[in-house]
Structure formats: C-alpha cells, structure tokens
Design a protein around this nucleic acid. Sequence first.
DNA 1: TGAACATACTTTTTT
DNA 2: AGTATGTTCA
Length: 817
Amino acid sequence: MTEAPLIVPGSVGPRSMGAQGQDDLLAGLNPQQLEAVTYRGPALLIVAGAGSGKTSVLTRRIASLLRAQEAWPSQILAITFTNKAAGEMRERVEAIVGDAARGMWISTFHSACVRILRREAQQFGFTKSFTIYDSGDSRALIKRLVKQHEADAYGLTPGAVQSRISKLKNELSDADAYARQANMSDPAERIFVELFADYQRQLQKANAFDFDDLIGQTVHLFRAFPQVADTYRRRFRHVLVDEYQDTNHAQYALIHELTRPVTGESPDPYASNGMMIFEPETTPELEGASLTVVGDSDQSIYAFRGADIRNISEFERDFPGARVVLLEQNYRSTQNILSAANAVIGNNFDRKDKKLWSDKGDGDMIVGFTGYSQHDEAQFVADEVEVLHRAGMPYSEMAVFYRTNSQSRALEEIFIRSAVPYKIMGGTKFYERAEIKDALAYLVAVANPADEMAVRRILNKPRRGIGDVTETAIARFAEEHDITFRQALSVPDQLGFGPKIQAGIAQLDAVLAEATEIMLPASGEVPAPTAVADGLSVLLSKSGYLDALRASRDPQDEARVENLDEFVAVARDFARNNPDGTIVDFLTEVALVSDADDLDDESGSVSLMTMHTAKGLEYDAVFVTGVEEDLIPHRISAGEPGGPQEERRLFYVGITRARKRLHLSLAMTRAQFGEVSVAMPSRFLQEIPAGLIDWRQSPGDVNSRGGMQSRALNARRGGGFGGSGSGDRFGVKQLPGRDSLKPLSTAMDKFPNRVTAKMRDNGDLELAAGDRIRHSDFGEGRVDAVTGEGAKRIAHVRFDSAGQKKLLIKVAPIEKI
DNA sequence: TGAACATACTTTTTT
DNA sequence: AGTATGTTCA
C-alpha cells in the first residue's frame, strides 16, 4: 500500500520492478511471506516462527530493494546474530543479485560497531588500533583489580563483578550513573563502584573496548556527537535486524539512534572518503531509515545476558505505524516434530498463541531413549548415527545438542571409540587456548602498545626469569617516568636489574620492534600482504617461544606447537583473503569470529553443540541429549524470574532444528564433580503427547525392578506431579518377554559411569577379518573387516549380542581372544 | 624463581 | 574427574 518516499538513485522511477523482474524473487512465497518481502514503510516486524523461511524472506527483501533500485547496496545495513548467519545471508543475497551486493553492511552488532568505532575512535580518546577484550581478557583485568582493591574481603568475586558490570553496560549505565542510585553506605557497593570506575579507566588507558563497550560506546558516540550519528543515519536508509528477540537494551538503543530522523544540517559528511551516496542538497531534513526486524519471542533464549523480550513484544508501541507480519507455516519439520514443539511451548503462559503447521505430513515418530549412564546414552546416539548413516544420511546432516558444554565429554569419548566422525562447535575455543592467547598478546603488543595487559602477559613467556617483583618494578618505573609499560622495556639498562634480566628485556624489546617494522613500517610504506603472518612467525621464533615449547618434555607442548602452526596458517589464510588486511584487521577478525562460525559444514561429520549454539541451524536428524531435570531446565534457572520459561524456549529451539528425525534421550544417572547422582526425566518430556514418542527404552524400563514399577515415575507422582491413573505419559510399554530377552540386572554393570578417563591405547593391536575380540561393554564378537590406516584403523565388528558396531582399534576397550 | 605438591572449585547459556 | 590456583620447598 503506502510507498515510502524512495531514495532513488539516478532518475529511475519508484517500483521499476518490471525492468529486471521480481518474479523469481516472489516465486513460491505464501501470502504472508510475500507481504514481508514487498511491504514498504518506516517499520516492519516479521514474527517468524521456527522454520518459517525467515532467512529466505529477509534475503529476498534485501534483493528486492536492490534490484528495484530502491536502495544502493551501501544504504543497507543488515544485522545478524552470528558471523556465520551474516556470511550466509551475504552469500544468498549475492546469489540473487550478484555484484550489486557489494558494499552492503551485513554483519553482527559487534562487527558493525567495531567498524564504526575504528573510524571514529579518535573523537573520544581512543585510536583506531584499539584492542578488543574478550570475556577472558576482561576477567583477567577485573581479577587484578579485585586483588588490588582487596575487594574479595567484601565478597566480590571477579566473576560476580564481571557479570554485574556487563549487565550494567548492557543497560547503558556506567559507574557514575550506578553510584547515583546505589546504596553507598554499603561498603561492598562503594568498592564495586570503585572497581567499575577503575576498570573503565584501565580499558581507556589500554586503548581497549570490551564486548559490551563495542555496543555501548557506539551509542554514546552517537549521542555525544550528533553530527557523527547523522552521517550514519544518512548513509543507512534500510536497517534490518535478525533475531530481534535477543537484542538487549544497548542494541535496541543503537537501532533507535540509527533510525532516528536527521534533524540538523550537517556539513558534507562523506565527501572525503568516497561514501557519498546521494545529493544532500534537497534534504535539510531526512526521515528515519526504514527498519525491518525479524524475530520470534518463542526463541528468546538470551535473557540471562540482558536480552529484553520487550524489545520485540513492544515493537509496535516503539515504532507507531509499524506493520506486523506473521509467518506460521513451517517448511522445515514434519508435523510430529512440530506437534511436539507446539505442545511444549504451549506451556509458557503470557505468550501470544502461535501454532506452527506443516504440510509435510506426520513423518517418523520421535525416538526416545533412556540410558543407564551418560555413556550408555552416548552409545545410543552413536549407534543411531551409524544406523542413519548406513541408511544414506550424511554425517553432516546430523547434530547432537546438549544443555551444557561439559556434557560433550561423554559423547566425545564414545564417538571416538566408535569411530564416528564428529566436530564440536563452540565450547573450548581455539582462541582461548593459552598458547594462542600468548601469540595474540604478542600481536597486540605490536598493534596496540598501550595495551599493558598484553605486554605483561608476554613479559615472561617464554621464561626470561622475570617474575612478579620485576614486573611490578617495571610498572613503577613506567609510572615514575610517565611512560608506558611498553616504552619502559626499550630502556632496559635504566631499570636497574641484573644483567640476565636486562638481556631478557632487551631481547623482547628487539623482537617486538622487529615485528613492528614488518607489520607497521615506520616509513609509512604499505606492508606486504603477508606481513601479519610473517610478523607472527618472527615473534614466535625469535622470542624463543617456539623453541621453549619444542625443548619441553611435557607431551602437551607438542600439541601447542601444532596449534601455533595452525594459527600461523590462519594468518596466511587471512592474508590470502584480505590482501590489504592489516594486523588490526586480523586481530578484529580473531576477536569477533568464534569457532561456531566455521563454515566447513561439508566436512562430513556429526555436529555437536549446545542448544544455544544450535539456534538458527537445521539438520535432518537431531539428537537432544540429557533431557533431565536440573539440566534442561537447568538447576540454576529455577531461582531466576522467567528462568524455567526460558529453559522451555531453549528446549523448543532444540527440537525445532530437526527436519525429519528427532531423538530425545536422557540418562538415569549422571556423573558430575566425580560424583554419580540419580537424574530425573525432564518435565518437558511429559509435555509432549505420549503418542508422538516411540520409546526404545523408556525411563520406566530402566528404573523398574523386574519390570514392575518405575521408581522415577513413582517419585514423580509422590512429588505432586500431575500424572495419575494411566500414569503412562512416558508410554511405558510392557514389552512382552523383555526380561527374558535382555535381563536388566546386568545392564548397570555394562555401562559403569566411568569410561576410563585416560584414553586407552591399544598400540598396534593387529586385527584382521575373522578374529574374535572381547569388548568391555558389548561382550564378544567377530571382526568383519578392518579399514583405515595407522592410528585410524577401524574394526567393523559383529557382536554376538550387541549387533554391528564400528570401533576405533587404537582406543576401543577391546582385546583379541 | 621455578618446580612439585596440595587444595579448591568447577558446570549455563555467548557476541 | 579434571583443572586452576595457591603454597611450600629446592
């Protein structure tokens, strides 16, 4: 209906769609999707249920703007939640409009803000080569400050301080603002305010931003320098935000700032750097950019870190006149999976009712399984993965989800033994390994010498005989002479240390200077494309870091050398992809790109990840593991307002990732902190209609003694759980003759909770087809075939009772008999 | 200063 | 259980 006043490049009239045709863009869309793509107006909210084709709608909307020449690429700012999502969206838009896509900003909130801040940092006391502190970095800094202020005496732990500061920053608060409304007669509060203020001072001094600052400081920048904000408001005429339900207040404010009308006349904003987009002459005033947000309040799972669901639920109030489009048809999953999802999420009150539906048909039943232990559960997953794979499903189309990262360990152990190729997304990250952080600190010390944390970190790595005392002395010297810590290193002879330490410092200084000359030549000439990788190599070798690792007899250090090699390779890759990339660009990328963003999806392995990481992804087969009370919903959530509901949404996100097959599994016992505890089935399981789940082994099967009663279920009912009469919510089937087929008494012994923590090593155990072996869990069996080579030899075994399995010979608990 | 040893703490989720 | 940190001793 209404046409927004269009910014029309050249003299092409509005809606000139005919020229290049939009038919292919609109083909196959349902009426709601069609409207979401074609509506034009100041504000549009697309409420997109899981699997409703949201990404497709968003990309087509962008493509349609571009193709109709309603906007230049440079006028589009699309914000996604992860770099991976951003990459995919760019790819898909490019696939439709080709080169016309270049110049768009498609990125995460954080990347977009870094781009803005690098350009504008000098306006408020930073340089463009500022460092980005990840949460580990800021924790380290806070830890030092807590110690300095002796704040632990007031019960302020680094972790608590960090999360409070983060929460406050997400609310755009700062130390002063907090102090004004805090109870300052409480000494703990006073200390906290001091810490907060000091932390911020240290960041400023180090020319660094933490994650939260990237957003918050951009907002402050826009508010403090309206003319700067206006340049971006003029530039971005179409702002699109994905996963809007997960935005926090700071992000909300940023969007608001960006989409505000331009009021004043600002002088010639972009003439200098080639960003001139349209003629400014006739627009003394410019209305706000058109805003499109996409989200689903049922998938809001980041309230714990400040996401405010009200941002989406009150969108219409915030942006009067906003159009709302609802996408409810699901194109991803079978009806059985959706029915389960709808049933679960329906238990959340105060939500707008929304029912996903599919025309794909019922599909397979959801498979349920209860293991005796977490390893038993993992074995079920591994076996099922193999069955599906043999039936033709690629590994890359399967995923295993869990609530906490620690659950991945048991899965890994079993997957390794069973020779199932897998990869873990997220979790302990490559860039969080100590040696990588060291290497990064070396680079930061070059790129941003003001960053004292980085310099301190590498001061004694490798060992130079520099300890606490020496470090403090250098810091004091720097302070007395009003120079930076880094500068103090360049005058080792004035520090008054012994010759050995002096030499060590001089050598470190020389290495840093040499690398600086490579990566940031003083002469001002452009560094070679490979400068970052070259400089990194120099730093690692000439500092003696690599030599120290090679000389070590700690077997882990070998792996560290390999990791560093890989890191250098990452730098070379970076140089190949970004010939003009500087060291600062490289560090930015590393700071903002998580492992989950790896795009090598086609590697042919099963993906393991937390349910949070799973958001936005989809797979043919999904395994949701650990569906137990205290895990999902997590124990900690019980105490937090809205916690249980958020857990339910998380579970909902997990199950709606599945296209064709969904498996829900749990274990009756779970080991944590070295202690084995009894686990209860999650309440969410009972919210799924029993008829949708095919229990291969139900909680009742596992807990019953002699198949009579279920201890867990009884405990449940005793605890006031609604189940009565039929008591069959789990679909406990009394399998005929089950006991005779598979005596349960032995089952517990078969999967003791611990699968030898230390990885077993069978060395060069020789196996050939025809050999008989004994496995600690599966009993005896016959080898059908051996494939693979060396450490990766795999035995294909047919067990007498446990059936067909693949085993990695080197680590499986087997012996030849 | 650095290595060996003892102890405490972990485990909610992440840009 | 495993790691990370702190403490003690060489």
